[in-house]
């Protein structure tokens, strides 16, 4: 890649960054602050992908209404990720099933992968950031 296409960071190196989300939103801040990392990673023109596994799949649940807990509903941001060229969203099938969820329950289109497929994808990364 030539330097002319570099983004904010002016990087000529592109690494495969994977942000792994395994925690539910609102109960802790990890989901929200992980999303902030994703947006910055994209601004640096890195190959960014997101994984949602375990309770992390709840981050993508449709219909979040946070007014009465006094927190900002940040779930619409997941729908805007495409605008930042973040298009690789992976959800673990076993995690969805264990929670009685289907892809239609999620607020963005995702690729649903079985644990074996997902483990292969995780091994192909350069940098894994877990939240």
């Amino acid at each position: 890649m030539s330097g002319t296409q570099a983004g904010e960071g002016g990087n000529s190196k592109v690494k495969r960054f994977m942000i792994v989300n395994r925690k539910a939103p609102y109960g802790t801040i990890y989901a929200l602050e992980a999303l902030e990392v994703v947006l910055i990673g994209a601004a640096f023109d890195q190959d960014v992908s997101l994984v949602f596994a375990d309770d992390g799949v709840y981050q993508l649940k449709k219909g979040q209404q946070t007014k009465d807990i006094g927190q900002k509903n940040f779930s619409p941001t997941y729908r805007a990720l495409g605008d930042y060229d973040v298009e690789k969203l992976y959800v673990e099938r076993e995690s969805l099933q264990a929670r009685g969820l289907a892809p239609e329950d999620l607020l963005v289109p995702v690729r649903v992968l079985g644990s074996t497929e997902l483990s292969v994808l995780m091994e192909e990364q350069d940098v894994v950031l877990s939240f």
Binding site: K15, E36, I40, F44, L129, S130
Partner: peptide, 20 residues
């Protein structure tokens, strides 16, 4: 500094180790 410094560390370091 900004979060960009984390991404930069991911790019420049040979390994990034997360403690959480």
């Amino acid at each position: 500094s900004g979060l960009g410094q984390l991404i930069q560390a991911g790019i420049e370091a040979d390994r990034l180790v997360v403690f959480g």
